[in-house]
Simulated scan of single mutants.
Amino acid sequence: MLKLLIVDDEPIILEGLRDMIEEEKTAFRQIITARDSIEALERIELARPDLIITDIHMPEIDGLELIRRAQQKDIKRFIILTGHDVFDYARKAVKLQVIEYLLKPINQVELAEVLRRTACELIQEREILEVSGNPPEEMGTSQNEHIKLLKAYIEQSYMKDISLSDAAAYLNLHPVYLGQIFKRETGNTFVQYINQVRIGKAKEMMASMKNLSLDTIARMVGYENQRTFYKVFRKFNNETPGQFRDRKVQSDSNSLFFKGNTDHGYDVN
Results as ranks from 00 to 15, higher is better:
D88Q: 08
V86G: 00
L64W: 09
F78E: 12
V109A: 14
K73I: 10
I99K: 10
I80V: 15
I75D: 06
E65R: 15
D85G: 03
K73A: 14
R116T: 04
G83A: 14
G83K: 05
P105W: 02
Q108L: 01
D62M: 08
R77V: 04
F78P: 12
D62R: 11
K92V: 05
I106P: 01
F87E: 13
I61N: 09
V109W: 06
R68N: 12
Y101P: 01
K92P: 00
K92N: 06
K104A: 03
V94Y: 07
E113I: 06
E60W: 12
V86W: 00
Y89C: 04
R68A: 13
F78Q: 11
L102K: 05
R116E: 14
G63C: 11
N107C: 01
I67Q: 14
Q97M: 08
D88G: 00
L81H: 07
Y101A: 02
L64D: 08
K95V: 09
Y101E: 02
P59H: 14
Q97F: 08
I106T: 02
L115G: 09
L115R: 09
K95F: 09
V86F: 02
G83Q: 04
I79S: 11
I106F: 00
L102M: 15
H57F: 07
E113H: 11
L103D: 01
E65D: 13
T54I: 07
M58F: 08
L115F: 09
E60G: 03
I75W: 14
R77Q: 15
D62F: 10
E110I: 05
I99E: 12
F78V: 13
K76F: 05
A93V: 02
I52K: 06
I79A: 13
K104F: 03
K95G: 10
E60M: 13
E65G: 04
P105N: 00
E113F: 03
I99V: 14
T82A: 02
Q72T: 07
I52P: 07
L96H: 04
I80L: 12
A112N: 09
K92T: 07
Q97G: 00
I80H: 08
V114D: 13
D62I: 08
I53Y: 09
K104T: 07
Q108G: 04
G83S: 12
K95L: 08
Y89P: 01
I67R: 11
L66H: 08
L115V: 05
I106H: 01
V94S: 07
R77T: 13
Q72P: 00
A70K: 13
K104P: 04
I53P: 09
R69G: 01
K73D: 10
K104V: 03
Q108E: 11
K95E: 15
I75T: 13
V94K: 12
Q97W: 06
V114T: 12
I75F: 12
E110T: 09
A93N: 07
I75E: 07
A93L: 06
H84E: 09
L81M: 11
Y89E: 03
F87Q: 11
I53C: 09
I52S: 05
I56L: 15
Q97C: 00
Q71P: 08
A112V: 02
